[in-house]
């Protein structure tokens, strides 16, 4: 059985560089389209042909197994030719600049470039230099729009809505592009957003993002419908931003006890990869309230929706 795509949603933009600037209608359009791919991805025949003939290059300046494979599957299931390039290990070491790399690849006429880079704004810079569409797969501490979309889809499927929910994001907000994209998206969709972290991991000015800020898990999780945990990078654990993993877990790690401060039907999310025993306890990560594996599934569907919606706006579409 093949499921025809009913949604004719077109993202009338050349690039998806961030959630900032997307309207609630655009977000809803992408989520509705993704919903259809969730069903498709559960079929035996997962292959579509809407991107047949299109070339997608996954250009990753920063290693990422899961996001890259998610985008690769998404592109292939839509029938595109997908090429993976890990630049972290090639041209950059030879001194080639980001813009040179972009222009070199552009000469090969890719239709869509999926780009991850360690510097904030780098994907936008690259987008200025190419003719095709660019999807931001994470730039520095700035944005990771497909992660926020897949989180939103996961929430919507489990809670039936986003509007009016209380979502608490916990952990390293300072360095997190996932947090930024989620804060923007959840606010746009009418959720009440809280952040909980030690002050050393909160960016200056966070209170002006339309979020409630707390340094205490009991306070921050009270009445939460969704608890979104963030990864704490290893190099930030030992004395630079927090004194130790033990202390961090004690105050900010999500275990059953702290989860008990949230609503009884609260659900737990994590963008992965997890540091078990640092920001999240295994019992919670693998427990009944966890949506973490479903997030991964939604990731492929959302990325298919993004690639499809952008390709419908490409020339000759």
């Amino acid at each position: 059985m093949n499921i025809a795509t009913k949604t004719s949603f077109v993202l009338h933009r050349r690039h998806l560089l961030g959630i900032e600037g997307l309207s609630p209608d655009e977000i809803t359009g992408l989520l509705d389209l993704a919903e259809e791919y969730v069903d498709l991805n559960r079929q035996i025949d997962k292959k579509r042909s809407s991107l047949r003939g299109r070339t997608i290059i996954n250009l990753f300046f920063e290693a990422s197994t899961r996001t890259q494979s998610s985008f690769e599957l998404a592109g292939k299931r839509l029938g595109a030719d997908v090429m993976n390039m890990s630049v972290a290990t090639s041209s950059v070491k030879k001194g080639e600049t980001l813009v040179d790399t972009a222009m070199t690849l552009n000469a090969m006429h890719p239709d869509i470039l999926v780009v991850r880079h360690h510097a904030s704004g780098a994907v936008a810079l690259l987008a200025q230099k190419v003719d095709g569409s660019v999807v931001n797969a994470g730039d520095g501490a700035h944005e990771h729009p497909t992660q926020a979309l897949l989180d939103a889809l996961t929430i919507r499927r489990n809670k039936g809505r986003i509007d009016g929910l209380t979502v608490t994001i916990c952990g390293d907000i300072l360095h997190s592009r996932v947090a930024r994209s989620n804060i923007v998206l959840l606010n746009a969709m009418g959720a009440r957003v809280r952040v909980v972290a030690p002050s050393t991991l909160l960016p200056s000015g966070i209170e002006r993002f339309g979020v409630e800020v707390s340094r205490d898990m009991r306070e921050g999780l009270k009445g939460a419908d969704i608890v979104m945990m963030l990864r704490l990078q290893r190099e930030r654990m030992n004395g630079s931003f927090v004194p130790s993993t033990q202390e961090y877990f004690h105050y900010y790690g999500l275990d059953q006890k702290k989860l008990g401060y949230a609503k009884a039907d609260a659900l737990v999310m994590h963008p992965g990869p997890m540091n078990r025993g640092v920001e999240i306890d295994s019992a919670v990560a693998d427990g009944a309230q966890s949506l973490i594996r479903e997030q991964v599934e939604m990731g492929v569907a959302v990325r298919m929706a993004v690639l499809e919606a952008l390709s419908r706006n490409l020339p000759n579409a």
Partner: peptide, 15 residues
């Protein structure tokens, strides 16, 4: 400059 605008851009601030 450190502050809201740097935080929004995902750039680290100078206090």
């Amino acid at each position: 400059n450190e502050g809201e605008f740097a935080a929004r851009l995902g750039l680290f601030g100078i206090p």
